[in-house]
């Protein structure tokens, strides 16, 4: 598989009014796991669609007038040109209202925002993606990117953890990803009858992996903070340098443009300095409860 690389930093023109959303239409709703669905969104204005680009790890603000806004990571292929996938879990009023919408409905979208995953830093290296639960959604664009230029990367491993086998996200794509040269492993906290795969937490999968070149291994992690903490510990124990470890963090995102103050994590703004951080840049602040 080969195709042109994603054009370097997608920086759309800064809007006059950063609060202003574009109208998007729901093209398709794909049910994923319980309470999670992927919304394929298309811009109504074709000139915006023509210029819209994002990088893996970035997020959009989705807006339901009268209800509110919610930050949703983009789970689409970075080469998407007509519609963009957003995998959303029902968690509060905005996502509840979203869950009641049908294809054809319109809503607002502004973005993309935030720092992306360091795809360039993965070139020529072993790459390990570790996802917990719905944390696979923000990593999926990286998988698309790695697969589009598979020969640029050495061993690519994707470790996916979920609560149950039914909670594994995007299971229909696993076979394709494996066939395209990804070592994909799954594990669940709780087995269901008939499950013959791994049972246990996702850091254990990392513990078991052979890491022939830890110095030349890049680790991208996304999931609950506790899961990320133990995954990073496992990687560090195995000799992966901190500057090769990246994770996606989260705080209450409201304006997404560094103007509202909500998403501060230590001295950083998650919307501007995150959500993807190099581990050593955020480690001292992740350790502090209530920061």
């Amino acid at each position: 598989m080969n195709s042109s690389p994603v054009t370097a930093p997608a920086r759309p023109p800064v809007p006059e009014n950063p609060w202003l959303s574009h109208t998007v239409r729901i093209e398709q709703i794909v049910p994923e796991i319980a309470e999670v669905a992927t919304y394929e969104l298309a811009f109504v204005d074709s000139t915006i669609a023509a210029t819209y680009q994002f990088q893996p790890g970035q997020f959009n603000m989705l807006y339901l007038p009268g209800v509110g806004e919610v930050a949703i990571s983009i789970s689409a292929d970075p080469r998407s040109r007509e519609r963009w996938a957003h995998t959303i879990r029902v968690a509060g009023s905005v996502t509840q209202s979203l869950a009641r919408l049908q294809p054809g409905a319109t809503l607002g979208l502004r973005g993309p925002y935030g720092n992306p995953w360091p795809v360039a830093a993965c070139e020529g290296r072993d790459v390990i993606l570790v996802a917990g639960g719905i944390g696979l959604a923000p990593l999926r664009p990286v998988i698309y990117e790695l697969l589009a230029n598979r020969n640029r990367y050495r061993k690519v491993t994707v470790l996916v953890g979920a609560r149950t086998p039914e909670g594994l996200l995007y299971p229909g794509q696993y076979a394709d990803w494996k066939a395209a040269g990804i070592d994909l492993q799954t594990t669940v906290d709780r087995a269901s009858p008939g499950w013959l795969g791994n049972v246990g937490v996702v850091p254990q999968l990392l513990d078991r992996m052979a890491l022939p070149a830890p110095q030349e291994t890049v680790l991208l992690v996304c999931g609950p903070e506790v899961m990320m903490h133990f995954t990073v510990k496992s990687a560090q124990r195995r000799g992966v340098p901190v500057e090769n470890i990246w994770l996606s963090s989260e705080r209450n995102m409201q304006c997404a443009v560094r103007l509202c103050g909500h998403c501060q994590l230590g001295p950083t703004f998650v919307c501007k300095d995150g959500p993807v951080y190099r581990f050593d840049q955020i480690a001292p602040f992740l350790k502090v409860e209530g920061l």
Partner: peptide, 9 residues
Amino acid sequence: HVLTFGARE
């Protein structure tokens, strides 16, 4: 959870 990003939810 991480990355359902529930702002004001």
